[in-house]
């Protein structure tokens, strides 16, 4: 289970709404490398993970991604509050507005609704951890791209924080991959899939 804490992991205080910026940042809510898919990827990978230390990393990183999802949603909410119809009509946000008004709905910046296909659970320790390492880098690139397109320091500050967390998570998944390799047959990492083959003992 989870317990909600009534605070953001890192503060979001945006003074000036900006529909164009919201249209860009929404990809980190509902895009292929966004925080929604990140949390679901790690939390779903846990159940068949045979190694309790790696399960711990998946649980704790997955939970932190939920906090990041809330931060991105807060950025979007504050960027789209108190906008005039005129401001919306003249921005690329108009196409989102027609379907969702200023409610928070997970889509990519391109407008494509969240697809679960990028969650990626393969049920194989090495495959999934390599997926997770790549996912953190893809999210880091997306935040880098957002930073190329956004000037407002109120928005850049929490985005920089989120970018830094992707780098930390990448490092922790590096630890997880090393732990997995320590658990496996050092002569042939691929001799078994310990998530499926019962001969590989639980640790």
């Amino acid at each position: 289970m989870w317990i909600y804490e009534r605070k953001l992991q890192y503060p979001v205080k945006i003074k000036t709404p900006n529909a164009r910026t919201a249209q860009i940042i929404i990809s980190q809510l509902g895009g292929p490398d966004g925080e929604l898919n990140a949390s679901m990827r790690y939390l779903n990978q846990r159940y068949s993970m045979p190694y309790r230390d790696i399960t711990g990393i998946l649980t704790d990183v997955g939970t932190e991604e939920l906090a990041h999802l809330e931060m991105v949603a807060s950025i979007l909410h504050q960027l789209t509050r108190n906008l005039s119809e005129q401001e919306i009509a003249c921005s690329p946000f108009a196409t989102y507005f027609v379907d969702h008004t200023t409610g928070i709905y997970p889509v990519a910046a391109s407008g494509m609704p969240t697809t679960t296909s990028s969650i990626a659970v393969k049920g194989d320790v090495l495959t999934d951890l390599n997926e997770d390492l790549a996912a953190e880098q893809k999210a880091r690139t997306t935040y880098d791209n957002i930073l190329r397109l956004v000037d407002d320091p109120d928005v850049r500050d929490p985005i920089k924080y989120l970018r830094a967390r992707e780098v930390v998570h990448y490092q922790r998944f590096g630890d997880a991959l090393r732990l997995a390799q320590d658990h496996l047959d050092s002569k042939n990492f691929y001799a078994t899939n310990p998530e499926f083959d019962r001969s590989a003992s639980r640790k």
Binding site: K7, L8, Q9, Y10, P11, D53, G56, I57, D60, V61, E64, V168, H169, R172, D175, A176, L179
Partner: peptide, 23 residues
């Protein structure tokens, strides 16, 4: 006070992710 809690939590999250791998 809330900012103080956030800062402590940041340290806890970092320590927990480390302890998962080095218990």
């Amino acid at each position: 006070l809330l900012q103080q809690i956030r800062e402590i939590d940041f340290c806890i999250v970092e320590t927990v992710l480390y302890l998962d791998a080095y218990p």
